[in-house]
Write a protein that binds this DNA or RNA. Sequence first.
DNA 1: CGGCATCCACAAAGATACTG
DNA 2: CAGTATCTTTGTGGATGCCG
Lengths: 135, 135
Amino acid sequence: MELESICFSSDCRSRGLFDQIADKWSAMVLAILSARPHRFNVIRRRLEGVSQKALTQCLRRLERNGLVNRRVISLSPVAVEYEITPLGRSLQKPLGALHQWTLDNLAEVDAARETFDDRQSDDAFGGVQVGNRTD
Amino acid sequence: MELESICFSSDCRSRGLFDQIADKWSAMVLAILSARPHRFNVIRRRLEGVSQKALTQCLRRLERNGLVNRRVISLSPVAVEYEITPLGRSLQKPLGALHQWTLDNLAEVDAARETFDDRQSDDAFGGVQVGNRTD
DNA sequence: CGGCATCCACAAAGATACTG
DNA sequence: CAGTATCTTTGTGGATGCCG
């Protein structure tokens, strides 16, 4: 299994990169941009729940890592467009596969969580309810 | 492109799940466990740089989401073994693909970062050095 | 419009110490 | 051995205000 080839040493630089690219906002932004370039506030609106700060940081990171390009279209009023790069497109597939996995296995994960949480409650006080997690 | 099927609404539950499963420690733990079950400190040692707290939390999360099983082998001295579940194995493939991507594209990302960082410095003070990022 | 700067609250990460 | 508890430090998210 190719997974065994993962490098575990603490100075393996792919660790840091993994952290930078594997987040849900990045995955969603790349998905949105895969169709065509978009402007900041359009992305912001489509990504219900993202703060402007979080989106700015996400786009900066994507830009710095070469996954999107930022283009100023016009000044006054300022218009900025973000477009996906070929490198960004290449990342889309694995990121999409991961997202697909969450979709396919949501139910099974939920079931596992219930089992786990029930077991925790029982362990804590033989049957006494302590309030269930809802996250 | 299947990526377009990503759900962007803020109540889409797959968002939260994405955040829970897409982290480097989880990917590495699953990779380690794919060969055979391992005990806590063995995993800890192979994952150079992970804190005991981070690993505990990671394993708890993996367990709660049904990706690994925790088995107490013996009491005094306490021995615990973690084994990957079928669900965990199914997650390994997409996670591994993501890791493979970081390996394949580290150089290209590095180049992009240099370009980006240089441009930032120039923008700030036409040529005056302000200290380069090293992260 | 597309940001950045600031402040605040809270969550997460680390280090250390202790336990069955 | 495999954690838990605690404390401290760092980071992140939200709200707000300002700018070109």
